[in-house]
Design a binder for these strands. Structure first.
Lengths: 288, 288
DNA sequence: TTCCATTGAATGGGTGATCCATTTAATAAT
DNA sequence: ATTATTAAATGGATCACCCATTCAATGGAA
């Protein structure tokens, strides 16, 4: 009922004063009435425009991590849009890890440090949507890790090696106490540390994104079958020794051999390799 | 708890009970009262929960690319949330490339094919936010491209090589006609094709994400200075020949040498390397 | 019949008002 | 001085609309 009872031409203010609406329209379709030149066709949606403006301020360096945006009500007024649509934009940016919204007085929208875990989410989505396959992901991981070994041998510092050593200790403890699932988490941490030891955060981010998914499969496998990689810490120690010696060839060989054995373990029971099982639930340490 | 004994009119307009509201409140306050272990702090908001549920359906394979979600009004009712908050969730998912919203009758929220360009956006944000540096990005690009050459030599197929050949033709044409900026776009395409020739979409996605940013710098440099890489197509042909011969060593050497000369060109004028210049505006072919 | 203009319903896009819940600072009471 | 109360600011969420776009159904004209 009460569909538009009037034809379209005259803007019908009805009860409310339409000043806000007109300003929003300016953003999108100004001059639609009598423009002789062709219009830019696609009516940008306001929330896209808002997102873009904020990202622009970011790229320009006007906004930096730690900065606070104006309060929603005020910012909405500044932009000439409704608070609801502004929130759609802010929410998108929050999901993208650019903003963090905090409640209460002194709250607001704060620019965040970049969250590298966002790339993990991209990988997950690509996998969920069938754009990439598990096989491609595993293959890419093997190759990237090979690269990481080279870089780590070249660049790893004392602190990096110590961190890896400490990780192996934790893994050993978890093994002795039979905490198999914790051990998987240790493994994930191991690769994260290894990637960090390259000294390149881009590489580290990439490695982490492909490793996170892989570890979900391992996790699911271990959780369901109870089996676990034998002689894990022993192999880790050998690898770390090679890394410390900057022996690229040996370290590379050891890692590749290990990755292959893990792969064999996973492929033993194809059922456990189900994408859905691995992606469905969220595990500790894998949440944003 | 969440039965707010509101002093005003009881909201009972809708058929659905506000169960969603109650559950959200439960999540927030459940652990606060009697939990012996510290709760995970995180305040769950409805739109997050909605996003997660939709992603869950995706991971489980219930939703697939091409599927359509119920209409906003209906889905909001099903979930027991307001339409506005549902839209916040849908918008986030749209920005994430998971959904596409289409207007009109027969419109709705459609699950998309995964958009690999999303990773580019992650890289851009990380750079904008200062989480990664241009140096790290360039370095990672060199290493990843080295890997790509190896894989391409092993896996490139006839069609891949032909596509690269065609790209070189276009580059040559653009060079002859003095369309320098188009030539930059050709270069970007070249690396995209090269990455695709590895046969691994994960690798391709990674390469594209690091190349896109790099090409913005090149673009800005070319646009401002008018200079352009000399003997570009000649070098491309040599490289392609090596690739066709599956000569990893030669192809790798040629590419690395080329990348170094480009890098030198960029570093000639540090001013042009400004992050802000490169990231600020959006170029053709680099929009989503 | 065939084709094209009109219509109307469904759907996303957007607005404004209103309320709730949380947080913090200022203030009052002890 | 310490603690409890209050008030204000802010994000979180809802409701009730309205607009613009799209597309199938309808109906009249060629």
């Amino acid at each position: 009922m009460s569909t538009k009872s009037s034809p379209r031409a005259p803007r019908r203010p009805r009860t409310a004063s339409p000043n806000r609406r007109e300003r929003a329209s300016d953003l999108r379709t100004a001059g639609a009435a009598a423009a002789p030149t062709f219009k830019p066709i696609h009516t940008r949606r306001t929330f896209e425009e808002i997102c873009e403006r904020i990202r622009e301020q970011l790229a320009l360096g006007v906004l930096k991590p730690g900065d606070k945006l104006p309060a929603e009500r005020e910012l909405a007024q500044q932009l000439g849009v409704s608070r609801n649509v502004l929130r759609e934009a802010l929410r998108s940016l929050e999901m993208a890890g650019v903003l963090k919204l905090q409640k209460g007085v002194k709250g607001g929208a704060f620019i965040q440090q970049g969250d590298t875990r966002r790339m993990n989410e991209v990988m997950r989505d690509m996998l969920s949507l069938g754009t990439i396959s598990v096989r491609e992901l595993s293959e890419a991981r093997v190759h990237v890790l090979d690269l990481v070994v080279q870089l780590a041998c070249a660049n790893a510092r004392r602190a990096d090696l110590d961190a890896l050593e400490a990780n192996i200790e934790r893994t050993e403890l978890a093994t002795r106490e039979g905490r198999l699932l914790d051990r998987v988490e240790c493994s994930r941490e191991f690769y994260k540390l290894l990637a960090a030891s390259t000294g390149n955060k881009v590489i580290a981010m990439i490695v982490d994104s492909v490793t996170e998914i892989h570890m979900r499969f391992v996790y699911a496998k271990v959780a369901s079958s109870g089996v676990a990689m034998a002689r894990l810490t022993e192999k880790r120690r050998q690898f770390l020794a090679a890394l410390s010696e900057r022996d690229v060839a040996l370290a590379s060989r050891l890692l590749r051999s290990h990755l292959e054995s893990v792969q064999r373990m996973l492929e033993q029971d194809p059922g456990a390799m189900s994408l859905h099982v691995a992606l469905a639930d969220v595990q500790p340490g894998m949440r944003r």
